[in-house]
Structure formats: structure tokens, C-alpha cells
């Protein structure tokens, strides 16, 4: 693997070193700016879902309320998993900057595994609720809950597939400007989901448990 590190360093020496690797190709800055703007649209999408949730949070139609439903250990574990994965995602980008391909791949894999863990816990949480009769057809509150948290979960799942595809490309092509851009962008996406989760954690779960 050391060889491939050298190889990466060689590659990098061919490029302009005054700029970060992900900005070196002509399309790097374009894609990164474009992705930031995409995140803005996604943020508004979540804002609309949050607004909907807040409006109909109390509309339980005689069914379970948020207080009845949420259990602290479940969502705490989910939060820890996702926060940790955000940290490992940063480590991956850090190792990419060091041209350490092996560690980059390693941290990406850890991030993916933590993400899978998060999705797994979320699915089991949902299955448990549905088993208790708290389905999304039961009340407006549950419709909003499943849709908001589920949309986030779907984003994370998509991120996992995306990251696996990028790991494959890093294995194949090493650390070069295109891959650097991809790793950087998927990292942005991952941190964004982490931020959205912090809002879900506080607005949905904490408020629910405390209320």
C-alpha cells in the first residue's frame, strides 16, 4: 500500500499544489458550488417537513402521542452512531488530504458501517412502533413523524449507496482530483444529514420526551 501512497503523491505533484486537490480540475469548483446550492434546496425541503410536523404534532386523533412513543435509549444510540459517523467522515477527508489511500478507504468503510447501524436502529424503531399499532395511517402526527424521520433515513440510505460507489472508485483510481472532489462532496452531504438529525433529535425526540 505504501507504493500506492507514493503513486498518489506523484499524481499530486503533477497538479497545482496551491489549491486543494478537489479544486484542481476545472469542474471541481463548479461541482462543489453546485452541491452547496443543492444542499440549500434540501435544507428548505426539510424545513417544510419540519414546519408540517410542528403544525400537526399534537394532532394525534386519540392515538399515541410523541411522549407515549419515543424511548430515550433508541434515539440516543441512533444519535451517537450518526454523530460518530460524521466524525469518521471528516477523518476520511483528512486522510485524503494526506494522500493516505489505505486510511481514507478505511475511514470511509467505518463511516458506511456506522451509517448502516444508524439505519438499522431506525428501521427497528419504526418496526416496533408499527407493531404497537402506531402506523402512519393512524393519525396526522404519525404521518408527519414517519415522513420527516423517514425522509432523513432515506437520505442516509442513499448516502450509504453513494459512498460505497465512491469507495469502489477510490480503490480503482486512487486519490486524484476527481475522486477527491467526490469524497469531499459526499462528506458535505454526510455532515448536512448530521445537522438535520440534530434538529430531528431536538425538535422531534427531545421535545417529545420532555413535553
Amino acid at each position: 500500500m505504501a507504493l500506492s501512497n507514493n503513486e498518489a503523491k506523484q499524481r499530486s505533484s503533477k497538479h497545482d499544489t496551491s489549491r486543494l486537490l478537489e479544486y484542481q480540475r476545472h469542474d471541481g469548483p463548479l461541482n462543489i458550488l453546485g452541491f452547496w446550492i443543492f444542499l440549500a434546496t434540501d435544507l428548505i425541503l426539510f424545513a417544510c417537513l419540519f414546519a408540517t410536523y410542528l403544525v400537526i404534532r399534537t394532532h394525534v386523533d386519540g392515538g399515541p402521542t410523541d411522549k407515549d412513543l419515543f424511548e430515550i435509549p433508541g434515539f440516543t444510540i441512533e444519535t451517537l452512531l450518526l454523530l460518530t459517523s460524521s466524525f469518521t467522515g471528516s477523518l476520511a477527508v483528512y486522510e485524503m488530504r494526506n494522500f493516505n489511500k489505505k486510511r481514507l478507504i478505511g475511514w470511509l468503510i467505518v463511516t458506511v458501517l456506522l451509517g448502516i447501524g444508524f439505519v438499522g436502529f431506525e428501521i427497528s424503531e419504526f418496526v416496533q412502533y408499527v407493531g404497537d399499532g402506531a402506523t402512519m395511517q393512524r393519525s396526522a402526527f404519525l404521518s408527519a413523524f414517519f415522513t420527516l424521520v423517514g425522509t432523513h433515513g432515506a437520505h442516509v440510505s442513499l448516502g450509504i449507496i453513494w459512498m460505497i460507489s465512491i469507495i469502489r472508485q477510490v480503490v480503482k483510481f486512487g486519490i486524484e482530483p476527481i475522486n477527491a472532489r467526490k469524497v469531499f462532496i459526499v462528506g458535505l452531504y454526510w455532515h448536512f444529514l448530521d445537522i438535520v438529525w440534530i434538529f430531528i433529535f431536538s425538535v422531534v425526540y427531545m421535545t417529545g420526551v420532555v413535553s
Binding site: 394532532h59 386523533d61 415522513t147
Partner: peptide
């Protein structure tokens, strides 16, 4: 989601809110 999954965002019954 209301129409195909039977959720209640904007329905009249079960707490939906058409105004939203």
C-alpha cells in the same frame, strides 16, 4: 403519501390539516 399510503397530512379526519 396521503393518497397512496393512506396518511393524514391534509385529510379532514384523523387530525389532517388541509390549510397546510
Amino acid at each position: 403519501i396521503d393518497r397512496i399510503a393512506g396518511a393524514h397530512f391534509f385529510t379532514m379526519l384523523h387530525g389532517g390539516n388541509p390549510m397546510m
